[in-house]
Every structure is written in C-alpha cells, then in structure tokens.
Design a protein around this nucleic acid. Structure first.
Lengths: 213, 213, 213, 213
DNA sequence: CATGAATGAGACTTCATTCAT
DNA sequence: CATGAATGAAGTCTCATTCAT
C-alpha cells in the first residue's frame, strides 16, 4: 500500500540510508516550517545543505520523497504509540493511551506531526500516483475501529458506529497539529486532558438517565 | 482600471456579478475536485468555459478570487446555520443545531464545504496578503466559545476549557468534508447522528458516579 | 513621413475630432506621469474617463495613437516656436530664440514635452511600423542645420559641422525634460540663461586668441 | 537557494561567472538592438543561445540582470575614462579628456553605451526596487560638478552654474549613443572634435568683448 | 457613438527533473 | 557519490485588440 522502503528488494548501503534519512529529516522540517506547497526540492536541499541534484539521485522524484516522509513519520508514530497502548489492560484505557501517546508524540516531535498533517491535508497524497488516499484513511482508522469493536463487545464502550467514531477521534487529534503550527506554545497538557475527558465521555456507556431531546 | 478594484461590491453591473459568481462557482468546484494547489486559474477558467484572461479581468488576482470564494462560502454557511441555531431554546440544543446545520449544509453543498476546508488547510489563506489565519481561526471558534460559556453558566454544560472544546468541535466537523471528498456517498445522516450524540455526551454535565482514571 | 492626421483623406466629424483630441491629451498626461511603457490603453482611457474600446474605435491601434501624440505635440511646439524665431533679425538671435521658445514651451506645457521625450527615448517610435526614426531625426535637425549654414555664411557663426552642432543643441535641450520629469520645480530660468549662454559661446566666431591645446 | 542571493560577488564559481558575463553581454546586445522594453528575457536568452529558465537560474530576476548590466557597463566606462582624465594636468584638459574618453568608449563598445542609455532613459531604473534614479543622476553629474568648481576656482573656466553645465555636458554626450544606434557608421572622430571644441568654448573664460544680447 | 466583456499573446518567475562532470 | 548547470513545463499577470450590444 505504502511505497516500499526498499529499492527493488535490494537493501541499500549504509551511506545511502543515511543520506535518505537526512533528506527526509530536512523535508520534514521544511514542510513543517513553510508548508507543503512551498517546500520545493531546492528549499529542502538547502536545509539539508546539499544540492538539488542529490535529492533526485536518492529519490526517484518528489513523489517518492513525500511518500518516504509519510511512511517514516507514520512508522515512527506507530512505534511510539503501540507500546503505550499495549501496556493498557482496558479498552477505555487503550483509547486514552491512544490519545495520550499521539499527543505526546506531537510534543516530542512537533515538526514531524505538523509535516504529516500538512501533507495529508494539502493534497500531498494526491501527488503520489500509486498511493490510494482511501486505503491510507482506512489504515489510519482500522486500529481505532478494532479497539472500539472489542470495547463494545466487552461493554466498556456504548453502542455507536465505530467508523464514524474513529473519524471523530482522528478529527479531534488531527486538529491539534494545525493549532500547534499556528501557536508553538500551545498548552498540550491542557489539550491532552480535555480531549481525553471529552472522548472518554463520548464513548463510555450512557447511564440510565433519560436522554435529552 | 479594473472594475473590482474600484467599487467594493456596491455598483457592479448585473452581468459582471453573474460572471464573478460563475467564476467563484467554477473555482469552488475545481478546488473541491483537484485540491487547492492544483486549482490553477487555467483549470478554473477551463471549467467555467472561459479564458484565463477573463478571470484576471474580473478579479484583481488569484488572491482576490480565493478571498471571494472564502467570503462567499463562509457567508453562505453562516446564513444557513444562524437561523437554525437561533431557533433553539437551550444551549445544548444550540450546539446540536450548530452541528446539524453545518452537516446539512455539507449535504446540500458538498463542493463548497470541501473547497472551504481545502483552502483553509492548504495554506490558501497564507496567499492572501491581508488575511490573518489566526484571526480567521479565532473567528471560527468564537461563536462556539461564547455558546459554551453561556451553557456552562446555565449549568447545561459541564466545566471544560471552552477554547479546547471549540477546537474539538471544529476538528470533528472539519473531518467530514475530507471524508466526503473521498467518498461522495458518505452517509451524512449517520455521521450527523453519531457526532451529535458524541459531542452531546462530551459536553453535558457528568452524572455523580465518575469512573475516570 | 509622419502619420497622416486625416483618415483616408476624408475629414472627420467635429465630435470625432474632439474625442481624438481628448484621448491624445489623456495619453500625453498619462505618458508624462507614469512613463511610456506603463501607459497602457487602459490607463489612458481611465484618465480620459472613457472605455478602452472607445480608444480602439477612434484609433486604429496604439501605434496610431502614439503617432498622433507625437504629431500633435510636435506641431504644437513648432507653432509655438516658429513666430518667436522669425521675429529675430540675426541668426545668433534666432538660435537664442530657438532655445528660449523651446524651454518656454516646456515651462508652459511640461507634460507634453515630457511625454514627447518619453516616447522618443523609450522606443515608442520603434513601435510605429511605418515611422522612420532617421527621418524624424533629420526633420528635427534640419531647421537648426539651415540656421547654422545661413549663420556661417553671414559670419555670425564660426566654422563647425552643422549636423553635429544641431545634435549638440538638441541633446542639450532634450536633457531638460528628463530633468524636469525628475524635479518638477526645476529652475527653468536658470537653465534657459545658462544654456543660451553656453551655446552662444559655442557657436560664435572665435576671437583671434590662440587656441589652447 | 540561488547562488546569486547568497554571496555578493565573493565566491561564485568560474563557470557561473562566465555564464553571468555571457548573459549580461547578451542583454547588452539585445537592449542595444531592440530597445529596453522589447528586450525580454526570452529574447536575451535566445541571443545567448540558452533557455529562459537559465537566466532565472543565474539572476534572481530581471531586476538583478538589468542592475548588473548597469553596474557592469558603468564600472567599465569609469575604469576606461578615469586614467585618461587623471593623466591631464589642467581642468580644461580634464574636461576634454572626459569627453574624449567617453566617446572613445562608445567607439570601442557602442552596444554597451547604447544599452546603458536605453536603460537610463527608458525607465529601466524605475524597475529596480532599490535604485534611486535621482541618486544615479547626481552620481553622474557629481564628477563634472567638482571638475567645474575646481576649474572655476583656478580661473580656467568662466563663471557658470555648475549643475546646469554638468547637465549640458551629459546631454550632449548622451545624444551620441542615440545617434549611434540609428547610424552605426556615425563619424565619431568628427563628433569628438566638434563636441570638444564646442564645450571648450562654452566653458572657457569669455574674452573682454562681450556681445551677448 | 460608446461600452465593457472577452480573448490570446507574451512576459516574468518557480520548480521538478535531467545530465555531464 | 555528489554537484550544479541547464531545460521546459506550468503558473500568474498585463495588455492590445475585437466584438456584440
């Protein structure tokens, strides 16, 4: 689904991987700083301290570079979040850990998160000929949907449409990087607390009190 | 020299207004379809069936066109939502009406909403010299913040940070156009129902048996 | 040589002549104010308070309009200068009158003069397909050359190359509008006095004092 | 990103300098041939045998290219004239050397001189954001004004307004490139002789028999 | 007579990409 | 491996000109 990290199945030399990583880092920082559609290859190269041509040498094109950025950040986020989620013993706890770990990642690597959201919301994926935005969407929602289904079965969550609730959660979380990019001093703790509480209330079983019209 | 720089909406000819409206419509559709940064004046003109030059004839530049699109859609959305919200008698009802009217507007004019979100998230506002993204953000959150403050005072809402909750609401709602642009057959009723319920639960006062960790 | 003032030999209606004169005036003022290459038909029309189209209706194209401006101003200058020159009784007096009348015209109609020089120095003539810059040059020098030849024959002027001296005189005079366009408060009296003296000394017979090496 | 914005003439590669020089030369020739406002980057590139984009690669924009042309030619002219002027021992001699060296430069590099005058008279400087036409004017007149003041103090020149006389001298000299561009076979020797004599007569002290009206 | 809508050419600039060195 | 020169496409904007009303 996502572009391969390996070229023709052959592993890359150490120096090549280092260069690619350096370029990806420069791309992340550039996109986070000036926005996706102003992050030209020239600007990315300038930030990395290398020439335009070298980027083209290491990446088949801008598409591949952007795809690599997405893959790298996404993989990194997952590697950061997964253990924190798995450490939980309840589904509600997992949801809270999902939110917490995601926002903690933003605090630790704001540029990566801002860049990722920039790419996803600025049509960066549309520039990838082979990438399927739908598939990417689904891939993002899937862990949440499974979490919700399991939690509903166990009675920890009330009965709701898991797909829509997954979109709700992603929507709430994805709004943070945007706010973060506009105000770097954003109070993440406050957001973490409020978002966790709000989504906890939105997903927990409703007490027997009659619902308001 | 050009009509648009002289009068500010006061005395444009009928035919000019019609053309401007047509161009704005074409811009909306184009942006919704191919994304903001691929919606060139050429493509917009092609969709409108007119030449590139004619757009420049009616709009001082791309900036003015985009600004007009934002203004038009935003005004239209507000005109659609306001009466529905004002018809409510409770703050919780107003929040539900806010969500409902916003999503109903999306159902009625999906392209407009997609285009608006595209512009706002793709740095389109950054291309407008005078526009302040922060100010626009605040403008979007303000009605919600005021609604929440009033509702908290009346006891209809629990105690939460109104700014963060406003961002949550906008985040949830703004995720819909993106989903809508990827799946035009999206079940809006389902989303409406689920989002309304979720945000209702997230904002209403918590019953006396707290179970939060 | 110069573009015809009449169209196909047929005389124009009164109203048409009035419009043409109005447009020429607007063109003169526009060129004097913003320079030749920024004086678009649109700007000229705006200053005249009429539409772009109307200019095209009255003039075959921008070329004809510019040609008309040149012709009009040149004719006007000549009509102003000729009587003042003819009133003189000596050739040296005629030269002084030539300079004086030319600078007095600049004082009376600075815009016209600035516009004319703008056109001549900004390649405006090159835009006229049929106009021959050489011929125009010759036409400007001819009266001076004849004046010099007559004055040399009568002994009022020393022996010099009349063509070069004509270029010198035009060069000195043509430098004034440029200075005038940069400083509208230029002291024309001072320039008139100094230029007259300088050219008088440059053309009068040299006393028997041995020339300096 | 672009080499030219970073270092100011300090560390450009040899090949880059060569290209820049080639482009400047092509610009000079193009401007001299078709005039300033018709010398598009396309035409300049065509004459240099390179693509439009390459000019943008080496120069930040047309402004910088034109500025470079002005600087190059102006520096070159000064380097050519200064030693010839400094070799003189009298102020009158310096004035003659000023004229002579300037016209000799025109003979050696007619295109450069024509191009420079084209730019200066066609509003080319107005296209340069930072350039102040007034300052440039003053810069051109200043050496002459100082020369005149010194010469007047020493009694080699008569009493006249040094600013106006400087304008006279520049006006006379600047008329030559225009004539040269219309007739490449212009007799420069003749112009040199006549102009030198005329300005010599115009500035030297007047013998005791004034006959001015 | 006059307008203003409309077109299309041309200009400057940015950028991804290719390639010789 | 790496550079930087070079290209060409695409985009925005200006402008002279045409034409229906």
């Amino acid at each position: 689904m996502l572009p391969n990290t390996e070229h023709d199945g052959q592993s890359r030399s150490f120096i090549e991987e280092a260069r690619r990583a350096q370029i990806v880092t420069a791309a992340v920082e550039t996109i986070a700083e000036v926005g996706y559609h102003r992050a030209s290859m020239g600007r990315i190269g300038a930030r990395a301290g290398i020439s335009r041509g070298l980027i083209s040498y290491h990446f088949a094109g801008k598409s591949e570079l952007i795809a690599q950025v997405v893959t790298t950040v996404y993989t990194d986020v997952a590697a950061f979040m997964t253990p924190m989620i798995d450490a939980e013993t309840t589904y509600a706890g997992e949801l809270r850990a999902y939110i917490r770990s995601n926002l903690e990642y933003m605090r630790a690597h704001p540029a990566r998160m801002v860049a990722l959201v920039e790419i996803l919301t600025s049509g960066g994926l549309a520039d990838l000929p082979e990438a399927d935005p739908d598939a990417f969407d689904r891939q993002l929602r899937e862990p949440l949907e499974q979490l919700f289904e399991a939690g509903q079965a166990s009675g920890e969550f009330r009965d709701f449409d898991v797909t829509v609730m997954a979109r709700i959660v992603r929507g709430v979380i994805d709004a943070v990087p945007t706010a973060l990019s506009r105000d770097p001093d954003l109070d993440i703790d406050c957001h973490l607390r409020e978002i966790t509480t709000a989504l906890d209330l939105a997903t927990r079983p409703v007490p027997s009190t009659p619902e308001q019209t």
